[in-house]
């Protein structure tokens, strides 16, 4: 598999208002190419909005988001798999290729991406025959098939059971290490953030309240003392943060 460069991102004074509600207040942020950044925070803190503004799905009210190159190519993994039930697993992955996905090369690329997430054997099945974890792996393959330089994940493992979630975390870490994209993971699970990220951003009331580098060696073990200490500290900080009144 070819190694693709990750995108670098710079946010300067990014704010976002929905009507009368301020969701993001002057966020300044610079994200290293190829790094894995986790964004955590309470419900309604603005973390999903931050992700959508970075991806350009929502325009920033003020400030701007810039990327290191015009070729920056972002893909989003949703909390739900959002597979087309009437298309085969391989055709769903080919959706990630756009018009290019229609030809035989598209099918080949889709099968390759499915193999990367361990689902090569399911290429011709209907999504309805897959388990929840498998569906989310197909959604991951759909995001990765076009070799994005930025992969954004909006609480992608939130709906999975604990065991499947841990499997998915190591899968995510493996594809990230293999492909070298920049990863932005929005999650409400501090353990997940510490297990995967180089850097954890805690968002509170539309601001970056904590910017915590995680330099534990990989693969990380949850039972580890250093792991547990970091997780505990971040969790405490998260719980201490005053509840934000704003809606997401």
């Amino acid at each position: 598999m070819s190694k693709h460069k990750g995108a670098a991102l710079t946010l300067s004074q990014v704010s976002k208002r929905f009507g009368e509600t301020d969701v993001l207040h002057g966020v300044d942020l610079s994200i290293e190419p190829g790094s894995f950044v986790a964004i955590i925070g309470k419900s309604g803190c603005g973390k999903s909005t931050l992700l959508r503004v970075i991806l350009g799905l929502e325009p920033a009210s003020t400030g701007h988001v810039s990327s290191d190159s015009d070729a920056a190519h972002a893909r989003l993994v949703f909390q739900e798999p959002r597979l087309l039930p009437w298309a085969s697993v391989a055709a769903n992955v080919a959706v990630g290729l756009g018009e290019r996905g229609d030809g035989p090369e598209g099918v080949a690329a889709a099968r390759e991406a499915l193999a990367d997430v361990g689902l090569a054997a399911k290429a011709d099945d209907w999504p309805s025959t897959l388990s929840g974890g498998q569906r989310q792996r197909v959604a991951l393959a759909r995001a990765l098939v076009s070799h994005p330089t930025l992969l954004a994940l909006d609480e992608p493992l939130g709906a999975l059971d604990a065991l499947t979630r841990i499997e998915m975390q190591s899968l995510l870490e493996n594809v990230w290490q293999a492909q070298g994209f920049t990863a932005l993971l929005v999650t409400h699970d501090v353990g997940e953030a510490v297990a995967l990220a180089d850097r954890v951003l805690l968002i509170d009331a539309g601001r970056v309240a904590l910017d915590q580098p995680i330099d534990l060696p990989r693969p990380r073990r949850r039972g580890d003392a250093a792991f547990a200490a970091l997780e505990g500290a971040i969790l405490e900080r998260l719980l201490d943060a005053p509840a934000s009144a704003e809606a997401r």
């Binding site: 298309a87 959706v95 759909r142």
Partner: peptide, 27 residues
């Protein structure tokens, strides 16, 4: 609507969105 949003986020043109998402969904 989640599938329609997915189609838009994944860059489908309106025509493609209709053919791949809306029509099969309405069938």
């Amino acid at each position: 609507p989640q599938l329609i949003e997915m189609g838009r986020v994944y860059g489908m043109s309106p025509r493609r969105l209709f053919r791949r998402v809306i029509l099969p969904g309405a069938l």
